[in-house]
Design a protein around this nucleic acid. Structure first.
Lengths: 189, 189
DNA sequence: ACATATTGTCTGCTTGACAGACTATCTTCG
DNA sequence: CGAAGATAGTCTGTCAAGCAGACAATATGT
């Protein structure tokens, strides 16, 4: 019985308990597949999919400062530093000091970067299409829309006053002592 | 035409070109948020979200051999080895040699593991609910359904003859020479 | 029986992430 | 104005995660 995922019209029990029907597992699987495919699609762009997103942001002029970009992409600022170093070395983006605040530097796409992005965008679009291809034609847009809505929600970019505290909730409620250390294994050390 | 997703009624431009409407960015953001929340929710389970999924599979009896489990979860078999070591050390799962093929070992939940999983499942369910809470009540199940359908597709578990070649497609079509090496930065080396 | 493939484990190396220190700049407030 | 504190970005050091490859045990095919 473990995984009756029929879910059709009635599905009595809250959760079929099959891995295949688990939300977390599903999003993980889809994410991995997407990331892997994009990795291949963007080829030699430094930073892989991440680098691509940085380039996207830069090319569309919504990158802003390194800090805001890093936050939006969910990467550490130190990571952003060398990610940009590599992207800059490849002549895809450039950093320009913000005249208004000389501490911060804004990220822009170079001309070459913009061109490259256009190609890439097409390729990545294909990946996306192929992936979504598993859904019936008429649901694809709906799915995309919902996914983006969720993304906006968790990043606090929708109107919601509550920027999705999912994390916070447990972060405090649990006070998990956190596994002492889950390194490799005690090997011969 | 790369991916004009608006296409709804009129929307002139092919793509708002905003990161917020990018499929890849969105799935990444949602995935990160979910993973982080689950990490907090499962607390001290070795391996974090990953360990939780292994436990899920074990508890519902769908784990199978280490190999099949590893493949299904998208982790390397060497990683699965020490993941299971830790889980076993915590008395959550156990490995039993498959009598039919003594090379392979099947994974099961211990009694303690099963109990623990029940609690965890509830907590993780909350995370999921909270996350989906951003969608209107009536779309949630639809979204879940579509996501799971996609997951089944990319993992080749739906009926499809084509187990989603997204990767393959570019893996060969591009022959990307792959960035020479994108290590840290050249520092003082 | 022998060659070859497969499962799981172990070792070593590389990559990637994060904490913390440091510099330059901005802000605040006396 | 000038000192104190905050903030953006960079750099260094450390450590965990992951992978490639070797290996042992077992299975399969000829």
């Amino acid at each position: 019985m473990t995984s009756q995922r029929s879910l059709g019209a009635e599905a009595p029990e809250p959760r079929p308990s099959g891995l295949d029907d688990d939300f977390g597992f599903a999003i993980g699987a889809v994410f991995r597949a997407y990331a892997k495919a994009v990795e291949a699609a963007v080829g030699d762009i430094p930073g892989g999919p991440r680098g691509y997103f940085v380039l996207s942001a830069a090319a569309t002029g919504e990158a802003g400062s390194q800090k805001s970009l890093a936050e939006r992409l969910g990467v550490d600022r130190t990571v952003m530093t060398y990610l940009l170093d590599d992207l800059e070395a490849a002549d895809l983006v450039e950093r320009r000091p913000d005249p208004a605040d000389r501490r911060s530097r804004h990220v822009f796409a170079t001309e070459h970067g913009a061109e490259r992005w256009e190609e890439l965008r097409a390729r990545v679009g294909l990946v996306e299409q192929h992936l979504l291809g598993a859904l019936p034609e008429e649901s694809r847009e709906a799915f995309r829309g919902m996914l983006c809505a969720l993304a906006r929600h968790v990043t606090g970019r929708d109107g919601t006053a509550d920027p999705c505290q999912v994390v916070v909730e447990f972060g405090i409620a649990e006070e998990a002592p956190r596994a002492p250390r889950r390194g490799r294994r005690r090997s011969a050390n």
